[in-house]
């Protein structure tokens, strides 16, 4: 397993909803599990999120979205990452959470989101998933 305190996680909230409880709970959970977490606050544009991924050199990008605009914003973030030379799931692991219907979740996972964690996902599962996937990133392999 990669030493967690050297794994940087960005928790970002794209879109216009202000429901940040979930993002804060996840940020806190990752902190308590020993990760370095960067939280950038609500109402972030895809451009801001991608720039933060680059400047902070994070290994995990967790997107929390409850506005319903996930099918617009998440693909845009994935595209911007690739355009900036950040390879999804090779350089950075992308996971998502919030209110995302199962059909959309499936679609997003096809596009490159490693996994969508809906409401009620046990935090331990999310962290185990990240531990396992981070070890396969280019930086740590």
């Amino acid at each position: 397993m990669v030493e967690r305190s050297k794994v940087r996680v960005l928790i970002a909230k794209p879109g216009l909803d202000g429901h940040d409880r979930g993002a804060k709970v996840i940020a806190r959970a990752f902190r308590d599990a020993g990760f370095e977490v960067i939280y950038t606050g609500i109402r972030q544009t895809p451009e801001q999120i991608v720039e933060s991924v680059i400047q902070e050199d994070v290994d995990v990008l967790g997107l929390s979205i409850l506005s319903g605009a996930h099918m617009v914003l998440i693909p845009k973030i994935l595209k911007l990452l690739e355009e900036n030379g950040v390879k999804v799931n090779e350089d950075v692991l992308v996971i998502a959470g919030g209110i995302i219907p199962p059909d959309d979740a499936q679609e997003l996972e096809k596009m490159g989101v490693a996994k969508v964690f809906g409401p009620g996902s046990p935090i331990g599962d999310i962290i185990n998933f990240v531990d396992e996937k981070v070890a396969k990133l280019k930086k740590f392999a």
Binding site: R31, E36, V37, I38, Y39, T40, G41, Q48
Partner: peptide, 16 residues
């Protein structure tokens, strides 16, 4: 835990 929550960026995000 060795973990950290880095939140200073929130205030400066528009310069990102």
């Amino acid at each position: 835990t060795g973990g950290a929550l880095l939140g200073d960026r929130i205030r400066m995000q528009k310069h990102s």
